Computed example of a mutant assay.
Amino acid sequence: MECPECGGERRTFAVPSELRADVPDRPSSILLCTRCLAFEPVENPDVEPSNFATISDALPDEPDAAAGMVLATALLSSLALYRQHVDALFDRVEAAGVDPLLVLDRLAADPNLDPNFDIESRRRQLLQLRD
Score class of each variant (00 low, 15 high):
74 A>R: 05
64 D>N: 13
56 S>C: 00
36 C>E: 08
38 A>N: 12
79 L>C: 10
37 L>W: 02
37 L>E: 12
38 A>W: 15
53 A>F: 06
27 P>T: 02
77 S>K: 09
69 M>D: 04
69 M>G: 00
56 S>R: 03
39 F>I: 06
34 T>G: 03
29 S>V: 06
83 R>K: 14
26 R>G: 11
29 S>A: 15
73 T>N: 02
78 S>A: 14
42 V>P: 15
71 L>I: 07
62 E>W: 00
77 S>Y: 09
29 S>T: 06
35 R>C: 05
80 A>R: 15
31 L>P: 12
34 T>L: 09
86 V>R: 02
63 P>V: 10
33 C>I: 09
49 P>R: 08
37 L>T: 01
65 A>F: 06
85 H>A: 09
50 S>F: 01
28 S>P: 15
77 S>N: 13
68 G>Q: 12
73 T>F: 02
40 E>R: 10
40 E>F: 08
41 P>A: 15
64 D>G: 00
82 Y>H: 15
85 H>G: 01
82 Y>S: 05
66 A>Y: 03
38 A>E: 14
63 P>F: 08
43 E>V: 08
74 A>C: 04
78 S>M: 08
36 C>I: 12
80 A>I: 14
25 D>H: 15
52 F>V: 05
52 F>E: 04
55 I>S: 03
77 S>W: 10
85 H>I: 11
81 L>Y: 15
26 R>T: 02
75 L>C: 10
82 Y>E: 04
77 S>M: 07
67 A>N: 04
86 V>A: 03
75 L>F: 03
74 A>Q: 09
39 F>C: 06
55 I>K: 00
34 T>W: 01
41 P>G: 14
31 L>C: 13
69 M>A: 07
75 L>P: 14
53 A>G: 09
87 D>K: 13
44 N>C: 10
82 Y>V: 07
49 P>N: 03
30 I>T: 12
64 D>E: 14
53 A>L: 09
76 L>F: 08
42 V>I: 12
60 P>E: 00
27 P>I: 05
63 P>C: 07
84 Q>P: 00
41 P>H: 11
69 M>T: 06
50 S>P: 15
